[in-house]
Amino acid sequence: MLKVLASLRLFFFLCLLLAAAFLYQTLFNRGAPVYGSWWFAGLGALAAANIAACSLSRRGASAHYLLIHAGLVVVIAGAFVTRAFRFEGELPLRAGQESDLAYSGRDTYKLPFSVKLEDFKLEYYREPLGVITVEDAGGRRDLYAVEGASLTLPSARLKVLKLARDFGVTARGETAEKSPYWFNPAARLEITAAGKTRRLWFFANFPGMHGEDLPLRVTYALEQAEIKNFTSTVQVRGRAGTVTRAEISVNKPLRVNGYTLYQTSYDPADARYTLLTVTRDRGAWVVFAGFSILLLGVLLWLRK
């Protein structure tokens, strides 16, 4: 039995089974992922046992051999710790709101600290530019959207009256900016064509609008609107009353009280909203230790 466990044949067999699982999952499976199943965990455990058995039964194993294989076993062990003990919950917050509840599926968890969102902000690399594109029988022309700019074509005349970054309409029917961000960019244009003058709003998110009303095709689009980052400024209040104030952005999580808070998402419809994710994963540190051991072994193996 131990001979089978410590055999390379078992390793090759496991490789084939894992390959089959991966191929099935990534190419064909439409149901629940196979990775959560008991048999997949079994494969992982068997792989770890196989690697450990091979290492223990090998005579005169070199340092790099032991490090590589031990590292792999530690990684797999860490994966099991993660599988058993990892916690992840969503923490949606609006500015000014404080909460200690995290949501995971249908469950609600109470965290040992509360998080208050002071502020949320979105940053662009450059100030986005609106571009109006006009197409008629004569061709295509572009106009940068600046209030007061105008364009004269043989068939029509256009003038930019007003621009909005995040077009919204108040309860009283007035146009207003919903947020400082370019979520619903719009341009009000005065178009004189075929003897008629019209004033219409054009929306970057709805390029098909007014298609039937005009003898030419006019669209409004946004350029250089790439987002640089989005950041939540939070206050974390621990049980002991300690308050930590920090900024959380993508790639800059906040590690506090054994938990980690990530900036996950935002809502284009609500500039005061943030979605944070809170996790706790002891297994990650086991895995990273495993990686270190593995990589040290790989380095020694290459140098050999």
Binding site: F11, F12, C15, L18, A19, F22, L23, Q25, T26, P33, Y35, A79, T82, E88, V250, N251, P253, T260, Y262, T264, T277, T279, D281, A284, V287, F288
Partner: peptide
């Protein structure tokens, strides 16, 4: 540190692991 999870079994991760297994084999 970016997504909150050291392994999400997304297709790229899974296939890189499969490639790694292939060369290990």
């Amino acid at each position: 540190s970016a997504w909150g999870s050291w392994w999400s079994w997304d297709p790229k991760e899974t296939w890189s692991l499969l490639t790694w297994l292939g060369y290990a084999a």
